[in-house]
Design a protein around this nucleic acid. Structure first.
Length: 816
DNA sequence: GCGGATCAC
DNA sequence: TATGGTGATCCGC
């Protein structure tokens, strides 16, 4: 395939800019030999998988554009009239609300140019620079001007100087005077200083700056030279104006970091950001706070300069003949008809030079993830191992911020650079490696099986956790389990489960209830009803089946240890029908559980033996996979099925305890594809996930504020089983939990089988678990309503997340 | 809620 | 030589 021809066709015939081409509309790219660079890129990438994928993505964008153009041809004059009224009404409202009273400054470190300098100066290349993040300059400089300053990333921040400037008017000279250390201002001063810093790796408080040396002043910053504050021999005094204040900030930043910064001063964040680019590097630009100046600035501004307008949006607008902000305004009516409400609102704001006028602190983090790129990995066992490593890393990060989330998203990129993500939401917030891995592993397993018999050829894998508990929910979940257990004696009211239906693709950890309490109440009710039976069953309960530990059946061959050999039969006990199952692999066993869950369990009195002929479609289970090297053995530990069969409750108090040897198995219902129409009907309907918790023999409910005490005892505490509601004559939590386990295993699963058929006649095991969700169309406070952006504020997100500022990334990394 | 896509840095 | 990581948001479904 001749890729060049193809892209040429795109370029010439359709007149679109191909995505691989260098686009120099963004900042700092001016003056580069675009044509030459494009040629290099083309030559270097032609025929590569990456290139082909770029081409494919480009076609998709072109297709979008074609669709849009098609849509455009069908617009009626009536629609236009109506839209005209609508959009002009909004324009009036926006104009009325225009607020020019704030002085917003966007500060941007000139990292790119520093990098260039490093490149051009080989001696500097390997020397770490004295740099910190903007959040550091937070603390040390910016906060002096605006306590609520907003670090966007490592090298960007917003400050609102409005208040500072009022105070500054009354500041004496002394408060605006800064001293230069002159002893280092020599030819080699800077370099030597960098050396010092490298050796001390301490923050530098008085660095010899090169701020006013000719070689740091760019031609486009003549004004800086002209307006240089009065420079005494060793001191520099800044004035009281906005410009002076911003120069002072930039000066101090350079003193501290040896890096120059650029700044934009404007009445709102959008404009400030755009104009910090105007006199980059080492310069600043101000838009005066009056409408005319704002509109003059906006007039010929290429849309791509505006934050939020990326490559694709630029291309789409270009297809409509829009390349500048003025043209947005001219085409505003058309835009309302071709774009979503939030999009055209955003466009309109841009075209009027409007943006957010107050800097808001970071909202709460919404997700956390970790991902890794690697050379091709196609062996599933390695993929699982990698997945677990990612979960491990992510769990550590989550722990650092004390976060627990309900949605796990697995991201995969294959060797063709095709990216896909698969998500699964559980009803109980999770955070540990084992918990996340249990879900991620299952998502991965499904993908591996879908691809079978071909391997997944991956080049990237990522794991993300989102849907964090909010403060309210955290509090709710932090109730001490002991309080809970003691209170359970009183809580006896019953709350029957409504017939409910799960949202599609919801993935639930059994048993699912919206509140632990109602769950236990239900259990108690059952126990009450079956008191007699249970008494008879006491002996049986002692034998209540657990998923037996799968003995390590594989031999150590070639340094590999097979955790499970599909060819070797295991005796497993179904947690639903409690019958022993002789199966050749976990897949078979899981299918049996699925059947039981959906209520088509075979006669429980008959020992079931799945034979391979009965299930011809079975694939080798990937749940337990072999590690490829001994040093990965630890990963295998969690893949063992435990002695103890454990159901994790929908209650965060039941957090896992990670220091034990045995593993807990949790049935997870991944209802992917069900009720989603024929497209996805080939997905597995129900999957019993073998969740692998590293735990002691029992799961002990642990309050988040308590130390795990699984094997401990509780003196002077009366333990009452929340299921049978009977006082347990033990102070050993392990024994107590064992008792609860037994109660649970019997009762819950019976309940599940009872409720596993929904009224619509769709057998669906998950129905029984969906205490918190409702059938589509029903009222539910949890229903998410897709809201359009409420305000007319710029679409620019209030902030980037703090993680970007964490130790994970440093500017010096950028220079490598 | 899911998944793909876009955007920023 | 081979093409990054993290996080947010939007939008159609």
């Amino acid at each position: 395939m001749d890729s060049t021809k193809k892209s040429d066709a795109i370029l010439s015939k359709e007149g679109f800019q191909f995505r691989m081409e260098l686009n120099d509309n963004k900042a700092g790219m001016e003056g580069l030999d675009k044509e030459k660079i494009n040629k290099i890129i083309m030559e270097a990438t032609k025929g590569s998988r990456f290139y082909e994928n770029e081409l494919k993505k480009d076609h998709q964008v072109n297709h979008r554009i074609e669709k849009m153009m098609q849509q455009k041809t069908q617009i009626t004059s009536l629609q236009l009239k109506k839209a005209q009224l609508q959009v002009d009404k909004l324009v009036l409202e926006l104009e009325e609300s225009r607020d020019l009273s704030h002085v917003i400054v966007h500060i941007d470190m000139d990292a790119f140019y520093a990098a260039v300098e490093m490149r051009d100066n080989p001696e500097l290349r390997d020397k770490p620079m004295a740099v910190g993040s903007m959040s550091m300059l937070v603390r040390e400089i910016l906060a002096e001007y605006d306590l609520n300053f907003l670090p966007l990333s490592l090298d960007e921040a917003y400050i609102d100087l409005t208040e500072h400037l009022k105070e500054r008017l009354n500041w004496p000279k002394g408060k605006r005077t800064y001293f230069l250390r002159t002893d280092n201002i020599t030819e080699n001063g800077r370099e030597e200083h960098i050396k010092e810093v490298a050796e001390s790796s301490l923050p530098v408080h008085s660095i010899s700056p090169v701020l006013f040396e000719d070689n740091t002043l760019h031609a486009n910053e003549d004004n800086a030279k002209q307006n240089t504050p009065s420079l005494a021999e060793h001191s520099i005094i800044f004035g009281i104006s906005v410009e002076e204040a911003v120069k002072e900030i930039r000066f101090r930043i350079e003193q501290k970091t040896t890096l120059t910064a650029s700044a934009g001063i404007a009445p709102n964040m959008m404009l400030a950001k755009v104009c910090s680019d105007k006199n980059k590097p080492n310069g600043q630009f101000r838009i005066l706070p009056n409408r005319q100046d704002v509109m003059d600035f906006i007039k010929d501004l290429p849309i791509r300069k505006v934050p939020g307008i990326g490559r694709v949006t630029e291309k789409m607008l270009k297809a409509l003949g829009i390349t500048t902000c003025t043209e947005i305004y001219q085409q505003r009516v058309l835009l309302t008809l071709l774009f979503s409400e939030s999009s055209w609102h955003n466009f309109l704001n841009i075209s009027l030079g409007l943006g957010s006028t107050h800097i808001e602190k970071d909202g709460e983090r919404k997700s956390m993830s970790t991902e890794r790129t690697f050379s091709e990995i196609s062996v599933s066992s390695e993929q699982y191992t990698l997945c677990q490593e990612l979960c491990h890393d992510l769990a550590q990060d989550l722990l650092k911020e004390g976060l627990k989330g309900k949605t796990v998203i697995l991201k995969l990129k294959n060797v063709n650079f095709e990216v896909k993500s698969r998500a699964c939401t559980v009803l109980s917030a999770i955070s540990t490696e084992e918990e996340i891995f249990a879900v991620a592993k299952e998502l991965l397993r499904v993908e591996i099986e879908m691809a079978s018999p071909h391997p997944l050829r991956l080049r990237l894998m990522g794991v993300r956790v989102s849907s964090f508990l909010n403060e309210e929910e955290k509090k709710h979940h932090q109730k001490s389990i002991l309080n809970f257990l003691q209170a359970s004696k009183v809580a006896r009211t019953l709350s029957p489960l409504p017939p409910e239906k799960l949202e599609p693709r919801q993935c639930n950890i059994l048993p699912l209830t919206s509140h632990g309490e109602s769950f236990f109440n239900k259990k108690r009710a059952e126990m009450q009803q079956n008191r007699e039976l249970l008494r008879d069953d006491t002996a049986n309960q002692q034998k209540i089946p657990s998923l037996r530990t799968l003995e390590t059946t594989g031999q150590e061959t070639n340094g590999e240890r097979e955790v499970e050999k599909s060819t070797k039969s295991q005796i497993l006990t179904c947690p639903i029908c409690f019958q022993k199952q002789e199966t050749s692999n976990l897949e078979t066993f899981n299918r049996h559980i699925d059947k039981c869950l959906v209520g088509v369990c075979e006669d429980p009195n008959v020992q079931i033996q799945h034979k391979k002929e009965e299930l011809p479609m079975l694939k080798k289970s990937n749940i337990n996979h072999a590690s490829t090297s001994d040093d990965k053995k630890k990963n295998l530990e969690v893949l063992h099925i435990n002695k103890v069969n454990k159901l994790v409750l929908d209650c965060d108090d039941y957090s896992s305890n990670s220091n034990a040897e045995s593993v807990t198995s949790i049935a997870v219902e991944c209802k992917q594809g069900i009720e989603r129409g024929s497209k996805e009907s080939d997905r597995p309907s129900a999957i019993a996930i073998n969740m692998c918790y590293l735990q002691n023999d029992s799961v002990l409910p642990v309050s988040e504020t308590q130390q795990p005490c699984t094997s401990g005892t509780l003196e002077d505490t009366v333990l009452i089983c929340p299921v049978c509601n009977l006082e347990q004559k033990t102070t050993s939590l392990a024994l107590f939990n064992r008792h609860v386990d037994m109660c649970l295993n019997k009762g819950i699963i019976q309940k599940l089988t009872e409720e596993s058929t929904d009224p619509d006649g769709n057998d669906n095991a998950a129905n029984a678990q969906s205490a918190g969700s409702l059938r589509r169309g029903q009222q539910n406070i949890n229903i998410t309503v897709r809201t359009k952006r409420p305000g007319l504020i710029s679409q620019q997100p209030a902030s980037k997340k703090a993680k970007a500022i964490s130790s994970r990334n440093t500017i010096d990394k950028f220079f490598k």
